[in-house]
Design a protein around this nucleic acid. Structure first.
Lengths: 120, 120
DNA sequence: TCCATATTTCAATGATAATTTAAATATTGA
DNA sequence: TCAATATTTAAATTATCATTGAAATATGGA
């Protein structure tokens, strides 16, 4: 992962509403949630503001959207999330064994591939 | 971890210089690095700008500083880092087994305690 | 086709964060 | 105590981001 990409992703998460949305979507799994449902769960309005924040998450690569009927679903891009977490902890403590583990979260519905990496 | 705390931490990381500093410190381990060395490693000036960014990391709880002789050392606050990563992946996929693992990195020099959490 | 629901877009304003420049503080050794 | 190294602080400018308010687009059902 590139520095610029990581910075953009972190910037997208550095906002209370977006962070709440992101965490909600992480919980929601690969199928995601429609905008109205996101708004409802977080107790915010489904207006231009939320739309703006959702777009920011997509622009940063942390989420994807798809239209389904008259609803637009947003879902976590788990690969990007994992790459970001790994980027942050990379070569922790200079490679000396220190219980470092790359964070990983992949939705069971889609794949059951173990995400444990070689701990180097 | 609280939403506000996490947002602040992510905001601190959402800057190219600070992100580079953070990753450098993660690699450096608990003893950390003096400011001049950080500047040298990253190829940036050890000026007010770097000082400002270092302070931001400390303010966000992601780093700590200590004076040693005429040098000021900065080091990763691993506990905060781990808490943040855990916060981001919390209840991934609604608790359904999906290879979710809380990220963890603790410097070997200080503790060898396994940081693997119950994967729920 | 017309209305209602769902979501997005845009332009303007207001709020925050980063860089610059310059001066200040702290520690060590001569 | 003077000079040198190491790092921080502050005020002003510039750049970037978020909110507001209102209009626009899209889909499905009556």
């Amino acid at each position: 992962m590139e520095l610029t990409t990581a910075t953009a992703a972190l910037g997208a998460l550095a906002h209370e509403t977006r962070l709440q949305v992101f965490r909600l979507l992480v919980r929601a799994g690969r199928e995601g949630l429609p905008v109205g449902r996101i708004a409802e769960e977080l107790g915010v309005a489904a207006d231009g503001r939320l739309s703006f924040h959702l777009k920011e998450l997509v622009a940063a690569g942390l989420a994807v959207s798809r239209q389904e009927g008259r609803f637009v679903y947003y879902a976590t891009q788990y690969e990007a999330m994992n790459a970001l977490l790994q980027f942050l902890t990379e070569d922790c403590c200079g490679g000396v064994p220190c219980d470092a583990e790359a964070a990983a979260c992949a939705p069971a519905a889609k794949t059951k591939t173990a995400s444990r990496r070689k701990s180097a």
